[in-house]
Design a protein around this nucleic acid. Structure first.
Lengths: 85, 85
DNA sequence: TCAATAATACAATACTTATTTAAATAATTA
DNA sequence: TAATTATTTAAATAAGTATTGTATTATTGA
């Protein structure tokens, strides 16, 4: 188990905005949600959400798919599950 | 599941010093370790370790027991385990 | 009781992270 | 092609966290 990655994951989930964003995507399942809709749902500014989505994505917790001018985010469930021994 | 507590736990484990301290105590099992020995093992100053142990304890991840002039810390394993559904 | 030791508390400083606003980029539609 | 929309980036600032050094508290053993 990679230590640095473990810290990155804990770190990624240690802010209210990021934990809320991640939970939202877990709830949305494989449908996921586009960034703008997430910002409205979570009532945070698009720029601020983008900042946090980037952190979550870099920690490997989210996957992004471009759909036209939308960015659809999905929770990367396996990353969490495989960390539960 | 208490949201705030979940964040507190992630937060508590999102620093290198704190994750190292927690892991050390998990390894030590029910024997635990006194603060001074932990500081030597982890090569951080006693004052700094004390700061982090306080955070871990407040998040409920550690238990402390006074033994004379020593403070023996132990990992509170159930708190983590019961969070894995 | 006094000196030594273990740990914590406090204050100052250094460092990181979060938030906001404005601007830039890129894709769509009129 | 121009205007619009979705998102990200950048810069500035605000807010929060970590580290260090020193002082304090509490306990033990001479």
């Amino acid at each position: 188990m990679d230590n640095q990655h473990t810290i990155a994951i804990f770190e990624a989930l240690s802010s209210v905005v990021r934990l809320d964003a991640f939970r939202l995507l877990v709830r949305m399942g494989k449908e996921g949600m586009v960034a703008g809709e997430m910002a409205k749902t979570l009532t945070v500014s698009p720029a601020n959400l983008s900042f946090h989505l980037k952190a979550l994505t870099q920690a490997g917790l989210l996957a992004v798919e471009q759909q036209g001018r939308f960015q659809r985010y999905r929770a990367n469930i396996p990353v969490i599950v495989e960390r539960i021994p």
